[in-house]
């Protein structure tokens, strides 16, 4: 077995030490920091991108929330305006209606007054006519002349009886 030849031990160990130490320094000083750097950088970059995405997401959510708030406010305001307008209009309508009602009542009262006046006037005239007619009839029938006062008293008696 060539592996057990002690004469070959020294050169192998010496070169193993040289090569292994050389490789260790090459890797630990040059190769590994580079690879570690790149991996680290990539991890940072991904983390940064994720953070950025997270930030944008919260911003979007904030924007949506403020938009919805504005929308709700506008809706509330619109509702208020509609409500106010409705109230104002109905108040106006009520006022106008009372005005009109008062007007109508006044006119009705005036008209009734006029009617009452006309009626009493008419009734007076009816009495006069009745007195004249009665005078004439009495004159014609019995030829007696009657005084206006007697006839008027009789007519008023008769009309009170009826």
């Amino acid at each position: 077995m060539p592996q057990l030849n002690p004469a070959d031990f020294a050169p192998q160990l010496i070169w193993l030490a040289i090569i292994f130490i050389g490789l260790y320094f090459l890797l630990s000083r040059v190769a590994l920091p580079r690879i570690g750097e790149v991996i680290e950088e990539r991890r940072d970059r991904i983390q940064r991108d994720l953070d950025e995405a997270e930030r944008l997401k919260t911003e979007t959510e904030k924007a949506i929330a403020s938009y919805e708030q504005a929308l709700a406010e506008a809706r509330g305001r619109a509702h208020n305006i509609a409500q106010e307008t409705r109230e104002k209009l109905s108040a106006e309508v009520a006022r106008e209606r009372t005005d009109v009602d008062k007007n109508i009542a006044e006119q009705t009262a005036a008209a009734e007054e006029r009617i009452a006046i006309a009626k009493s006037a008419a009734l007076l005239q009816v009495n006069e006519i009745a007195v004249e007619t009665t005078e004439t009839i009495v004159n014609e029938l019995i030829g007696a002349t009657t005084t206006g006062d007697e006839v008027a008293a009789a007519v008023s008696r008769a009309s009170a009886n009826t």
Binding site: P11, Q12, I19, G22
Partner: peptide, 26 residues
Amino acid sequence: DASFTNSSKWMLIALLVVAGFLILSM
């Protein structure tokens, strides 16, 4: 005896392959 042997040669090749690959690929 610190002779450069065939074993040393292949150790050196291993070093060059490993270091060369890791450094050049990055």
